[in-house]
Design a protein around this nucleic acid. Structure first.
Lengths: 200, 200, 200, 200
DNA sequence: AATGAATGAGGCTTCATTCAT
DNA sequence: AATGAATGAAGCCTCATTCAT
């Protein structure tokens, strides 16, 4: 007994996608403060159309988050395949970094895991998708053991922080360098004892 | 032909300082989006007075940046003293992290080094203040050699990204954990060859 | 050369009726500001269908007015029957008050007799339907003579004003009390000379 | 120890008054749905100025209500003077009718006594100001005894309903006629037993 | 010099109406 | 013929900035 969601009409679906894309790009270039008018214009639709699909600007951000979360889950699932956990994990981080570098929306959104724009359920999914590849890599001995899924999310944020400068700044292109740095930080050989995670 | 900057009258100077403090606190608590009215109210002055000192909200942010930069230079200078470069460097990073954790304004501002709210001259000073302690630590062999001053600024950003969630979120309290992680990443023992820095 | 109005197809007629009913109920509950979307939803038809029958929201209101007018004419006709003009007149007023109390739409519409939502022809019919029972009651000596049909419309408005508070308010339940008051006012025994009606 | 409300600056006070007047007139002509932009334009001020004094459109309506209430209390107090309670009462009703006829704002507002735009305290004051002259007239035997203050408010509404037609309509000029009618209704000689007031 | 009043562009959102499916 | 998608004018409100007191 599933909630029956009738598929959108072809044109509506197309417009919905265009709005999501436009919003992602606009947020990417100018942060979450871009006006919905601007987003609608970029999407080539009227303001009203945008509001038909997303009753609120916040709803739009949430929808972007959901999209990104789905992509993140897809990427996470891929990282669980194959017989080389180490390489898979590196590829996983690399893909995520690319997503952040290409898409300020992703970064903004990742920065907000756990904040009010995400539901508790979404946060849990996000954490779970991060946990899978991490634990597999730890089991394989290629990542230090004292990191948890939440740490990985923080590391995403940290990498994200290097992929973009903030509103008005220029993108920083050499996030690969800092991804590499974070990989060093995660290596077992490099490990000193981290301070304990705080109780939340 | 020097620019003759007459010193402000005593009360004017006091007002200027109060505004700066209020702005720093307000930005710290609520990010750069706090209204100029709120800042004036906290400072106990009228909006007009604020605008007399800072012709623009942006100018106010720049002045805060200058303040922060001065503090940063002070902290940097301290890190050049003593005969234990390693400890000094760790203390330096720790102090900076505290500054970021305590002060959203600091973080916002650091995030914007190189963006339009800073002059080229300020960016250069920021970079230079970062370079001193870093190079001294590298010379002492406690930090890997393939890091440059710009990398350290990025690392500040990365640490900063862990000290705060974005607008409306809750502060993340265990930045110490991630500072520790970054220190691991900077250790020579842990070093793999980083990808080269890109030409700018 | 008469206007040939072809009868609507059966389903079209049914849809028209459903829309009218839905609109009447919606207006009754929430006043004339209910959205056209809400009405269509209640009627179980699409917005487009509604607009096929009523090219304008105003046209819909006019149609409701016509319906109400028909009902009013029916009630008026009933009041002309029987051999007890006084009782019939009281029943007439009572029925009208019930209609107003039950139906914000009726009230809104009565309030607008003579305004742009009614045609001159409709206003005349409304006035005529009011005049019949009034004049019969006057002829029977149970209602003062210095009242005219237009006065009766005003009296309807006055009674209506007690049956409803305005947008968002709660209905006032004791309109019977004020109906009674108006009946006192209309009694010949009570009559002082009213100021003359103004020329229009 | 009173709440110290510093008097508004001269220009501010003038603008506040102009906004109130403009709003009253605009509401009078077009109902409560007139835009604040329109009101501001009529008042000859910017939208922002309006919002500085009245943080909300609703607040503006409330302020108008308060103004009207003050005037109503003044008129009520006058009606308690002199040694001819009957004449004073008639003058009182007449003045109120004039206020309603001149000022749709008054009517809209009276219609809303007890609704959410008025505080309980204001409603009580309104009722009290109505009660004074009424009870005095009853004591003098010139008004029937089975009317209460709330009835008088309803009677104001009824008179108000005749002074104006609704949005877009033309004003009805002969409210004097209906005021006279209501006075007949209130005369002791005319009294039949009214249905009892309902419990609220 | 200091204050806070005034301004108006711009932000989010609603809704009557038109139009493609 | 029916549907619901699309549109954009208009509404309320905020806030950086200018200006009169």
């Amino acid at each position: 007994m599933e909630a029956h969601v009738r598929p959108l009409r072809a044109d509506a679906a197309r417009n919905r996608a265009r709005v999501l894309d436009a919003a992602r790009m606009a947020f990417a270039e100018a942060g979450l403060d871009v006006g919905v008018e601007e987003i609608a214009r970029r999407a080539g639709v009227g303001k009203g159309t945008l509001y038909r699909r997303f009753p609120t600007k916040e709803a739009l951000v949430c929808a972007i988050f959901e999209d990104i979360l789905l992509e993140f889950e897809r990427v996470s699932a891929e990282a669980l395949e194959g017989d080389q956990p180490g390489q898979a994990f590196v590829r996983f981080l690399n893909t995520c970094a690319v997503m952040q570098a290409d898409n300020q929306g992703f970064y903004d959104v990742v920065s907000r895991v756990g904040s009010k724009v995400t539901t508790a359920e979404q946060s849990a999914r996000f954490r779970k998708a991060a946990a899978g590849p991490l634990e597999r890599a730890q089991a394989a001995g290629v990542v230090r053991d004292d990191l948890a899924a939440d740490d990985l999310l923080q590391i995403f944020r940290m990498i994200g922080a290097t992929t973009r400068e903030f509103s008005g700044g220029q993108p920083v292109e050499d996030w690969r360098r800092y991804l590499s740095l974070m990989l060093d930080a995660m290596r077992p050989a490099a490990a000193t004892q981290l301070p304990p995670r705080l109780d939340r």
